[in-house]
Deep mutational scan, measured.
Amino acid sequence: SAVVMEEGSPGEVPVLVEPPGLEDVEAALGMDRRTDAYSRSSSVSSQEEKSLHAEELVGRGIPIERVVSSEGGRPSVDLSFQPSQPLSKSSSSPELQTLQDILGDPGDKADVGRLSPEVKARSQSGTLDGESAAWSASGEDSRGQPEGPLPSSSPRSPSGLRPRGYTISDSAPSRRGKRVERDALKSRATASNAEKVPGINPSFVFLQLYHSPFFGDESNKPILLPNESQSFERSVQLLDQIPSYDTHKIAVLYVGEGQSNSELAILSNEHGSYRYTEFLTGLGRLIELKDCQPDKVYLGGLDVCGEDGQFTYCWHDDIMQAVFHIATLMPTKDVDKHRCDKKRHLGNDFVSIVYNDSGEDFKLGTIKGQFNFVHVIVTPLDYECNLVSLQCRKDMEGLVDTSVAKIVSDRNLPFVARQMALHANMASQVHHSRSNPTDIYPSKWIARLRHIKRLRQRICEEAAYSNPSLPLVHPPSHSKAPAQTPAEPTPGYEVGQRKRLISSVEDFTEFV
């Protein structure tokens, strides 16, 4: 048969007729292969192709491409040299491709048809291009793949890379869960390890502090508590009631339409708007009261037996805890006409967050109470924005700035309102402590230090009264110190430094 060459192609190359033996071998191979691939376009007849790359030819070592076609129900084999250009295909004639002069020997084609199974398996396991790669995943090629499931790999992101949580363990979102698992493993320790309690022994800490320079003076030496005195035992138990972190309780009120001037209507609300609910979820963490331990979680007086509701929101960081007394989460009882059960919590909070959804101005004093010092007013606006402002009593104007209003988005509203309420509550605590000038409020841990110092002074006084020969370590507060001759004046800087060093040991009130 003659071949018409394309323009620009090399000279004529004689194409030899395939021997009958080659056709029989390739026909047997075509019957084993699956003929249901995917359909081509209507211009080209339905056909199945599979590209198999052999590394070497037997005796020649030339890479070839073998295409199996099922045109007219008769499979045909096409061998081509890759750099050459194939002729145009037609549905009426068999596929013809040019070969190099080196394939002119018909014996070479017979060798190609009689490829060993080793070469076929190696060509099938190679990388296939384009559409033949999808075909190689079918059941027909499963014989050339190794048996057994593939090893499982770690989760992959859409980009093909490992997620960040699997790369950096410290930033993994499941870090707290692993800590819980470690605690569970520790709890399952053997009885021999049960006595080993991690941490620092208080006796060891005391020993280090006792021999430090801070205890060089007799006034700073630790003293032993009497065991037989019940009054001192009660004082030590009272110390446990003062937490070592700051605590805040903040009221949250929802004002519906037409309720801006009605205290009873505001306290009777059992739910609010959708934006109000989203605002609550951002204030803190939802907790169930019956599962809380009052000595570990500050509840601000809420009952854990269901008297004040089942849930509330709280927030904490390293040095403070805040609980929100939310009116809509507290039960509304029919027998309580004046809502006294709610007001006994909300009316005693220094700061209230008022979500004013009424469309009218909310005035300070609508919720009557002796300790309502500051109101954080949240007014929802259009386009997911809110107006946040402050209202306070006249005696609080020096501590709280009420002249600045803020426009905040719904997303950042819980954070801004919480921070403003916490700052206002700190100012309210300082303002409330002014009624007792001898006990200015600095912080909870300073209050613990003052309680310890008062307890020490009482013990020293009782020891001096029981044994008059012992001198008083600290003179009583009601006694007057003996007159001392004025010492020589020293520079102001040295006096300030000495006073600062003494105050650092005794108390921190002056620095606050």
Score class of each variant (00 low, 15 high):
437 P>T: 11
244 S>M: 07
356 N>W: 00
379 T>S: 06
402 T>E: 06
242 I>T: 10
441 Y>S: 14
422 L>D: 01
489 P>C: 10
499 K>A: 14
217 D>Q: 11
357 D>P: 00
383 Y>V: 04
393 R>G: 11
400 V>M: 12
339 R>F: 15
270 E>H: 06
227 N>Q: 12
455 L>A: 09
431 H>K: 08
230 Q>V: 13
384 E>H: 12
230 Q>M: 11
292 C>W: 08
405 A>P: 14
434 R>V: 09
430 V>Q: 09
369 G>T: 05
265 A>C: 05
404 V>M: 13
456 R>E: 15
379 T>A: 05
418 R>N: 02
427 A>F: 14
256 G>S: 04
336 D>N: 15
430 V>D: 02
355 Y>R: 00
332 T>C: 12
485 T>E: 12
333 K>I: 10
376 V>C: 03
418 R>C: 08
262 S>D: 15
268 S>I: 02
318 D>M: 06
358 S>L: 01
220 N>H: 13
463 A>T: 14
263 E>W: 03
487 A>D: 12
365 G>S: 13
288 E>M: 08
411 R>Y: 06
484 Q>H: 11
289 L>Y: 14
220 N>S: 15
406 K>D: 03
328 T>W: 01
224 L>Q: 15
356 N>T: 00
446 I>E: 13
400 V>R: 03
426 M>P: 00
279 F>Y: 00
249 K>E: 15
246 D>L: 05
275 R>F: 00
386 N>W: 00
449 L>V: 06
384 E>V: 02
493 Y>M: 14
403 S>I: 03
281 T>N: 15
278 E>M: 09
443 S>G: 09
412 N>F: 03
252 V>S: 00
253 L>Q: 01
340 C>M: 15
285 R>S: 15
460 C>Y: 10
322 A>G: 04
336 D>H: 12
282 G>H: 04
367 I>N: 03
384 E>F: 05
502 I>R: 11
262 S>F: 03
451 H>Y: 13
317 D>P: 02
273 S>P: 04
478 H>N: 15
360 E>D: 09
496 G>S: 13
415 F>C: 03
248 H>W: 05
224 L>V: 13
270 E>W: 04
352 S>A: 13
334 D>M: 13
325 H>N: 04
281 T>L: 07
245 Y>C: 07
257 E>K: 06
347 G>M: 15
328 T>F: 01
509 T>H: 10
257 E>W: 08
360 E>I: 04
499 K>N: 13
443 S>A: 08
348 N>R: 15
338 H>N: 14
265 A>E: 06
314 C>I: 15
373 F>P: 03
262 S>C: 11
318 D>I: 05
338 H>R: 09
243 P>N: 07
308 D>C: 06
439 D>A: 06
333 K>C: 13
425 N>Y: 03
468 P>N: 11
487 A>Y: 09
458 R>Y: 14
502 I>V: 11
319 I>D: 15
510 E>T: 12
416 V>N: 01
505 V>S: 14
356 N>L: 00
399 L>E: 07
489 P>M: 14
363 K>A: 11
278 E>T: 06
460 C>H: 09
332 T>A: 09
230 Q>R: 11
233 E>L: 12
323 V>A: 07
229 S>Q: 09
466 S>F: 11
466 S>T: 11
428 S>F: 05
442 P>N: 07
395 D>W: 05
288 E>G: 08
349 D>G: 14
313 Y>I: 15
387 L>C: 04
289 L>A: 14
227 N>T: 13
256 G>W: 01
502 I>F: 13
283 L>W: 01
426 M>D: 01
483 A>K: 08
327 A>I: 03
405 A>I: 15
265 A>W: 01
337 K>Q: 15
462 E>P: 08
448 R>S: 12
268 S>L: 05
404 V>T: 12
329 L>H: 05
465 Y>K: 07
504 S>E: 14
357 D>G: 02
499 K>G: 12
407 I>H: 04
266 I>S: 03
349 D>N: 06
232 F>N: 08
274 Y>F: 10
445 W>D: 15
329 L>D: 05
262 S>P: 03
397 E>R: 05
315 W>Q: 04
480 K>C: 12
390 L>M: 13
324 F>D: 02
438 T>W: 07
501 L>T: 14
392 C>D: 01
382 D>R: 02
408 V>S: 02
295 D>Q: 07
405 A>S: 11
364 L>N: 12
399 L>H: 10
271 H>N: 08
250 I>F: 05
313 Y>H: 05
234 R>D: 15
475 P>Y: 11
496 G>Q: 10
405 A>F: 12
406 K>N: 15
372 N>T: 09
407 I>A: 03
274 Y>M: 10
504 S>Y: 07
470 L>C: 13
335 V>D: 15
380 P>W: 00
252 V>E: 00
281 T>Y: 07
316 H>T: 15
409 S>L: 02
401 D>V: 03
247 T>S: 06
326 I>K: 03
461 E>P: 13
445 W>T: 12
304 V>M: 13
366 T>Q: 04
492 G>W: 06
230 Q>N: 08
304 V>D: 10
438 T>H: 10
345 H>R: 10
296 K>I: 06
391 Q>P: 00
347 G>K: 15
405 A>D: 13
478 H>R: 09
254 Y>A: 00
291 D>Q: 14
218 E>T: 09
234 R>Y: 11
